[in-house]
Design a protein around this nucleic acid. Sequence first.
DNA 1: AAATGATTAAATCAAATGATTAAATCTTTT
DNA 2: AAAAGATTTAATCATTTGATTTAATCATTT
Lengths: 199, 199
Amino acid sequence: MEPITTEEKIIRAADKIFTQKGYAATRTREIAEEAGTNLALLNYYFGSKQNLFRNVVKQKLKMLLNAIDPIASDKTIPVVEKVRKISEKYTQLMLENEELPLFILNEWSANKNLFTDLIRETRQHAEPVIRKQLSENGMDITVEDLIVNTLGMILFPFIAKPLILSSGLVEENQFAAFVTERKEKIPEWIISIINKQIQ
Amino acid sequence: MEPITTEEKIIRAADKIFTQKGYAATRTREIAEEAGTNLALLNYYFGSKQNLFRNVVKQKLKMLLNAIDPIASDKTIPVVEKVRKISEKYTQLMLENEELPLFILNEWSANKNLFTDLIRETRQHAEPVIRKQLSENGMDITVEDLIVNTLGMILFPFIAKPLILSSGLVEENQFAAFVTERKEKIPEWIISIINKQIQ
DNA sequence: AAATGATTAAATCAAATGATTAAATCTTTT
DNA sequence: AAAAGATTTAATCATTTGATTTAATCATTT
């Protein structure tokens, strides 16, 4: 019963095209067409391409942060369990939005101000929590490395997907299975890394 | 004694601007200006923006492949040693070309045909070699995961640099130290992952 | 010096593109 | 039905942008 408003249609179209092509390569006419409406209305609602872009990015970024922050900053969840939950959630999220990570990273580079403003609103509280957990359990890794390794292992396949496919490392139709299996392995790998081995 | 030809100056300028901004956001006039020459000459030498871009990408991609392929496909180098060498070499390379990985990945997505053609020329022989090495030594990981994890851990910090900086995870002036330390840690982490622990 | 090739400067084109406007039409509310 | 709001259509602007041309200038070679 919830009809999709035209404004929403434009947002979704913008989302799709911007994510696919990036800001500079996106034409407002294409967004309008994709939304099944016209250029006039796009500017009537959003004023400018820049502003429409801002809306899209804001929403995407919030989604990404909201998916990770509650887990990462929860003091009652053990570190390894956090990795497990985040690996699960982010892999799922990326499978549903495969072009998202590269889009975010790319536009972040090109448009640092916008993102820095947005990130400031959503403050990060995870870092000190994890740092404390790591030291209390005598785990052999820094917070920075843990976060970069975890996110890197989860996100890199999606970021480098075209490279992975055209090099023939993974077949197109096996990609989803590849990352789905990885999402179970990643926590195990992190455990191996975290626990200083007695050898 | 080797004077830089104007053609070379244009290539270098194109390299810089394209890498910085991506194809779509790059203006040929800016390249000409950066090269200290003019638009006419740019088109005189290279015919078109597309073609100039092709030259730049070709050169970059060759550099990246040449840095990794001889190591990865060498049957006499043990797997862990390969990781060590590649971690060393790629970290160095990325420190000297920080915007390169995101540029390549991004343009690869936008322009799959071009890259697929280029990658086909430089055939990959590393994969079967590593696969054999892994199975012969009973190592507990697939080639695909090994490659993705290694490259992910090396490259992700550079790809996600703006994110890492504006989240405050690492300070700008400590970034080089951060990745330099990581390049020593990565082989150790890979060893932990590869060797099934007796527990 | 003459000739040849490299380079510059400036103007210009044609197409693409972000944006605006005005009038008409459709939809919903009052 | 009347009014108000939403949407379309079409035309138009101003600017940007990739590309081309022409004439002049500079550098090098013969």
